[in-house]
Design a protein around this nucleic acid. Structure first.
Length: 880
RNA sequence: GCCGAUGUGGCGAAAUGGCAGACGCAACGGACUUAAAAUCCGUUGGGCUUUAAACGGCCCGUGCCGGUUCGAGUCCGGCCAUCGGCACCA
């Protein structure tokens, strides 16, 4: 026997409809002011995280989120929304360049090929993207504006008084370069010799590069930084209003890492006290602590090895040990620092400080468990109530003083929680919270402390020593950087044959001597921007992708990124689902953004940061870019393992579509389980869903003698009967609510129930089929389009394609039953069922239930203590 | 170590505090077929039990232990396991 017969001719109808959609540009959204734009329509912006087009092509994980958003997009269009549903390419970055170096092909060529491959794969799935809005971060017409935004950032500063980014011209100080949001700093960076570039903290995992897994070492270099830390507070606070998963908000909060506490000054003990030769009079060491209430327990100070005061306070005889320790620390890579973290190290400086609470002399130590980049780079050691200080003090035999009494029975030694202050004259007996407040006030009065907030977040290391990225619109002259004028954009990278990293830390662009030479005196910046730059604002460009006057037109931005107007013709059940947090009526920005958790702190934080800068400068209408965020879960292989080439369990969408069709692929992706959940792939499951779609086909189509499909003679233009109407309206209700709630798996289950109910009936009512096809359309757009067209050819009387239909409403009255079955429980266990009229009163229900012979038998000899009636559902008789 | 998510049949999963397991997969039985595939119909959480057979009846069951409630997969407290994130951030 030849090839197995296809259950329905998806291989013919899918390309047919994709061609029709493309030809008619059915999914192209108009902007305000364009042609037939209808201002009465509310907007809905539904966005996917655009992919990095790798050489491997799509795997089944990509289209999971894409299918979900496509269903929502198609549904919203039918609901009368003007829907923005775009797609594009995040195509700059390390992997393309690594691949290019390996194969000798220029990254622009591999990128072009990969984009073409990705695009054709996506088109095969039948997504309703508006391809006229396609963007590509490597296109000069795109990165011109990436560079333009950089100029805006460079030419701004953060005004702490207004708590906003402002043009640098409002800065009144004498050194604007010291406050710019983009600045140059000599910082210890993550240098990856193998990749020949520095990496952001976020791109280093366990001391290895995220891309490639190569070792990363610490090394000081001059780099471009973006002052994201200025926005730390707003980035945390403004999470509150966003409709994001709690876990993602928490991830961002933890990453930003806000801590409230105090900065306390410790005076360095004078010459007379220490007997040292050098004078150290007047030096103060400022420490940051979240537990000022433990000040009385502070028995030593620690400075980070890089702390600037180290040189000034270390005693002569300690110098050799100190120098050795500092060098050893500097040489440690991140990996070593992490690995060696169990054993504390440090050296005594020979100097002492005065504890402002106890007035006692305490030793000053230098240790690398204190980080120069956090707080003040110095801490007060409280061995009795901090784990790290506990270990350190134990190792170096420093004194312990207990100052917090736990409220439970636990011992005070080593207790790090909140309790009652002891051995602390000023605050004895106070709770931790009150003790903090009081001791800060006491120190403040004497000018020795002030309340302070610290963030873990560091400024964003923004330069890379690579070829395949956006060049900076900056030149250097006489050792100073200077921004180029907007009119010079885009700055296009020079065509380089040898774009390999130099290995010295000098960027490949430096090899293009002619390009680097900007003028007699000035030369170009040769670093490039990191991959995140392009993805920081792509959602804005989609709003107005062809605009060559502005990064996004004002009107387009206001419309697509503004408030989505209230939905139209809401039914009660939908209002309920709105209240329960559905995808309607959000206060602005992208209305639904779907993507993976892996971007929880990188892309999503950077994009919010850029958005806020542009908002502050008056270029955007809302302070937050993504109003609602949903993370799709990872799809595992059939073996329940993460999909990977090495495990050989990768599923390609192409193969699935080849065997079962795009509609089956889409529906299975959604039927697997809840969108947000991690779940394993199953080819058997795909088959099951394909069978469902084939049943839909055969509901309306039958094979004639010649083996050709033709419209089934069972389909007739008659009214559905009562039970059919009931299931039809129940299906409208369920599918509508489930799409709003993104519960696509249960929506499909309901459609299966619908089809099962119409299988093997004598006549198939036309109207029920038409309604059903509209419901099915967002999930299986090709199949439903084809059947819709077949019905139209036979019966006429319907305008246009299925994609132009409006979403059906349901009638609650049809769903009302005359009679309901009521479960009868005795002491919480179901013992009987009775059928009763829907209108029966509570007393009538009670009477009917108690009259049931079965119940009488069960309750005989007992007294009925209570009867609980749940209307239309259940009665519980409590007996003793 | 800290933070978070998850835990329900052989499997993927359903279930506003109200009949646990919808829907699908797999398995088994039947119809159609020369036969198979496909399709259609039916059974399917575990155990016990009544009966000639059937209808039935009873008990147990949502990771474990406890609590709240007439009633708990769902709410509360405590554990266990798996996955994910952070990890000297003072």
């Amino acid at each position: 026997m030849s090839e197995r017969r296809k259950p329905y001719p998806f291989d013919q109808i899918e390309p047919k409809w994709q061609a029709i959609w493309d030809e008619r540009q059915l999914f192209h959204a108009l902007n305000p002011g364009e042609g037939n734009f209808d201002p009465a329509k509310p907007k809905f912006y539904v966005l996917d995280m655009f992919p990095y087009p790798s050489g491997a092509g799509l795997h089944v994980g990509h289209p999971e989120g894409y299918t979900a958003t496509d269903i929502v997009a198609r549904y919203k269009r039918m609901r009368g929304f003007n829907v923005l549903h775009p797609m594009g390419w995040d195509a700059f970055g390390l992997p393309a360049e690594q691949y290019a170096i390996k194969t000798g092909q220029h990254p622009s060529i591999t990128t072009r090929d990969n984009v073409a491959k990705f695009k054709s794969q996506l088109e095969r799935i039948g997504f309703s993207y508006d391809w006229q809005r396609e963007v590509n971060t490597t296109d000069p017409r795109y990165f011109k504006w990436t560079q333009w935004i950089f100029l805006k950032i460079y030419n701004s500063w953060f005004n702490p008084e207004t708590n906003k980014a402002e043009p640098i011209s409002t800065y009144r100080g004498d050194d604007p370069d010291s406050v710019r949001l983009a600045y140059i700093a000599e910082v210890p960076v993550n240098w990856c010799p193998e990749l020949g570039t520095v990496l952001a903290n976020e791109e280093v995992i366990d001391g290895k590069s995220e891309v490639g897994g190569f070792p990363v070492v610490r090394r000081p270099m001059r780099q471009w930084m973006l002052r994201i830390t200025a926005f730390a507070e707003r980035l945390i606070d403004e999470l509150d209003g966003l409709d994001w998963p709690q876990s993602i908000k928490l991830l961002q909060r933890n990453w930003i890492g806000r801590s409230e506490g105090a900065e306390i000054d410790f005076a360095v003990a004078g010459v007379a006290d220490s007997g040292a030769a050098v004078t150290d009079r007047g030096h103060k060491i400022r420490v940051f602590t979240t537990r000022p209430d433990t000040l009385y327990g502070g028995t030593y100070l620690v400075l980070a090895p890089e702390h600037s005061l180290v040189d000034l306070i270390v005693k002569k005889e300690q110098w050799p040990a100190m120098r050795e320790y500092r060098e050893k620390t500097a040489r440690k890579s991140d990996l070593e620092r992490t690995e060696l973290s169990k054993e504390k190290t440090g050296v005594f400086s020979g100097a002492f400080a005065i504890n402002p609470a106890t007035n006692q002399k305490i030793p000053i130590w230098i240790a690398d468990y204190v980080l120069i980049g956090y707080g003040t780079g110095a801490i007060g050691g409280v061995p009795a109530h901090d784990e790290r200080d506990f270990e350190f003090a134990k190792k170096f035999d420093l004194p312990f003083v207990e100052v917090v009494q736990p409220s439970g029975g636990e011992p005070a030694m080593g207790f790090t929680g909140e309790g009652i202050a002891i051995n602390s004259p000023i605050i004895n007996g106070l709770s931790t919270r009150e003790a903090k407040r009081k001791i800060i006030a006491w120190l403040e009065q004497r000018g020795q402390a002030k309340g302070a907030v610290n963030y873990k977040l560091r400024d964003w290391l923004f330069s890379r020593q690579r070829y395949w990225g956006e060049p900076f619109p900056v030149v250097w002259q006489d050792g100073h950087h200077r921004a180029l004028d907007e009119s010079e954009l885009p700055i296009v990278p020079p065509p380089l044959d040898d774009y390999k990293p130099t290995g010295t830390g000098e960027p490949p662009l430096a090899k293009a001597k002619d390009w680097v030479r900007y003028s007699e005196k000035a030369s170009r910046e040769t670093n490039t921007m990191p991959q995140w730059a392009g993805s920081c604002w792509y959602y804005l460009r989609y709003c107005d992708p062809q605009n060559d006057q502005r990064f996004v037109g004002e009107e387009a931005e206001r419309y697509w990124m503004g408030d989505s107007t209230a939905g139209i013709g809401l039914q009660n059940a939908e209002r309920k689902s709105v209240a329960a947090g559905s995808i309607r009526n959000q206060p602005g920005g992208v209305d639904l953004y779907v993507g993976g958790t892996e971007h929880a702190v990188l892309h999503l934080l950077y994009a919010r940061f850029w958005h806020k800068v542009l908002f502050d400068l008056g270029y955007l209408s809302k302070p937050e870019p993504f109003q609602r965020l949903v993370n799709q879960g990872i799809i595992l292989g059939e073996d329940n393992q993460k999909m990977s080439k090495s495990r050989g369990n990768v599923i390609s969408p192409d193969d699935v579509i080849e065997s079962y069709g795009a509609d089956a692929f889409r529906c299975y992706e959604m039927f697997m389980g809840p969108l947000e959940q991690m779940k394993p792939w199953s080819m058997r499951g795909v088959e099951g869903v394909a069978r469902f779609l084939a049943r839909v086909w055969r509901l309306m189509m039958s094979e004639n003698q010649a083996g050709e499909w033709e419209l089934s003679s069972k389909v007739k233009d008659i009214e559905p009967d009562k039970p059919q109407q009931k299931i039809m309206h129940a299906t409208i209700k369920k599918v509508t609510g489930d799409i709003e709630a993104l519960s696509f798996n249960t929506a499909i289950a309901q459609m299966m129930i619908f089809v099962n109910a119409f299988t093997n009936v004598e006549t198939i009512p036309l109207s029920a089929m038409r309604t059903f096809l509209v419901l099915l359309n967002p999930f299986a757009p090709h199949l439903s389009s084809e059947l819709w067209e077949k019905l139209n050819k036979q019966f006429g009387k319907s305008d246009g394609d299925i994609t132009e239909q409006s979403w059906p409403d349901y009638d609650e009255r049809v769903l009302v039953e005359d009679e309901v079955e009521i479960a009868v429980q005795v002491n919480g266990k179901v013992r009987d069922r009775v059928r009763l009229s829907i209108s029966a009163t509570e007393d009538e229900v009670k009477a009917a239930v108690l009259a049931s012979p079965k119940i009488q038998q069960l309750t005989a000899g007992h007294t009925v203590a209570k009867v609980v009636v749940v209307p239309k559902k259940l009665v519980n008789i409590v007996v003793n």
